[in-house]
């Protein structure tokens, strides 16, 4: 949208900044060349700009570099893309809590699709189990138990509430991020630039839904398990010390596909679609079902709706 002159200026500034940083980084690396300073320092990703400020060419460079890097690392043909949002699309998600049986199929489908660390364990979806009786006081998160372990589910007199990122319209996490490493894209997906996050975890303190997970240790996914279809802002491998979370399976939904959790659900409790399309599944359920969002009093305006089917 910027004029050619602005564009030029931006590039000139970018070039001098990169040079400055390169010098600074070399110095820093010399100082930090201590033993045990983890893996080889990746200068290219260190000098990379914020995704929102990169030119298309710069993004292509990054995608190319990462595709090569991961292909080599995992011995597979890995492609990293950065497919942008479609016109006139804002995503919404629906979850039928009258159907969910708490089987956690979605949790593990998500782990596999989105290359979440197996060890140390990271899971974007968390399923809370509630006593039906407790819910007569309203859904109080303190009554929820994510660690239930029954022979079979649903357990008697229990109901289940799966949670992940709510992709809030007014997301507190993006507001507090000091570096602007997380933001809401035009299609409503709250994304994270994993190369820009500094790991301060302010967003985790700000998120009312516990959606954000931190890489406390070095994340680990075996070459065998890695999903080679990656999106730069979605399921590509994360590094230690950054925050990650559900991206509505950005690598799938921007190509028109359903999210992985939805396809894994054995009871069809999960619904997904375009909130701007009056004929979409999501608009149908908003119109015809009783829906609610969690912690509505916080005015975060989630785009993740629970409903009674």
């Amino acid at each position: 949208m910027s004029s050619p002159k602005q564009q030029e200026e931006r590039e000139v500034r970018g070039a001098s900044r990169r040079e400055f940083l390169k010098t600074a980084a070399t110095g820093a690396a010399a100082v930090m060349g201590a033993p045990g300073a983890a893996q080889a320092f990746d200068f290219e990703s260190f000098l990379q700009k914020n995704f929102r400020q990169m030119s298309d060419e710069e993004i292509d460079e990054v995608l190319d570099r990462l595709s090569r890097k991961y292909s080599k690392k995992y011995g597979k043909d890995v492609t990293v893309d950065a497919v942008g949002p479609m016109d006139d699309v804002v995503y919404g998600y629906g979850l039928d809590i009258s159907r969910c049986i708490g089987c956690r199929r979605c949790v593990y489908a998500c782990v596999e699709e989105n290359n979440q660390s197996r060890d140390p364990e990271i899971q974007w979806i968390r399923v809370l189990e509630f006593e039906r009786e407790a819910a007569t006081r309203g859904i109080d998160m303190e009554d929820g138990n994510p660690y239930y372990d029954h022979e079979t589910v649903p357990a008697e007199d229990k109901f289940y509430l799966p949670m992940a990122c709510m992709h809030c319209e007014d997301s507190p996490c993006t507001n507090v991020c000091p570096t602007g490493a997380t933001w809401s894209d035009p299609d409503g997906i709250v994304v994270i630039d994993y190369d820009w996050c500094i790991g301060c975890r302010y967003c985790m303190a700000a998120c009312p839904y516990g959606a954000r997970k931190f890489n406390w240790g070095e994340p680990n996914v075996s070459a065998e398990d890695i999903n080679p279809d990656m999106h730069l802002l979605g399921n590509r491998p994360r590094s230690r010390g950054v925050v990650e979370k559900c991206s509505f399976c950005i690598q799938r939904v921007r190509k028109g596909r359903y999210p992985a959790c939805l396809e894994a659900c054995p009871v069809g409790a999960r619904k997904f679609g375009n909130l701007l399309d009056p004929d979409s599944e999501i608009r149908y359920l908003l119109k015809h079902k009783r829906t609610f969002v969690l912690k509505s009093e916080l005015k975060t305006n989630p785009k993740f709706f629970y409903f009674y089917g």
């Binding site: 940083l21 600074a24 490493a181 820009w196 996050c197 500094i198």
Partner: peptide
Amino acid sequence: GRPEYVWHLAPGLGT
């Protein structure tokens, strides 16, 4: 988590 990236906070250099 990644202190080497604090320059992302710096006015002018970062955002």
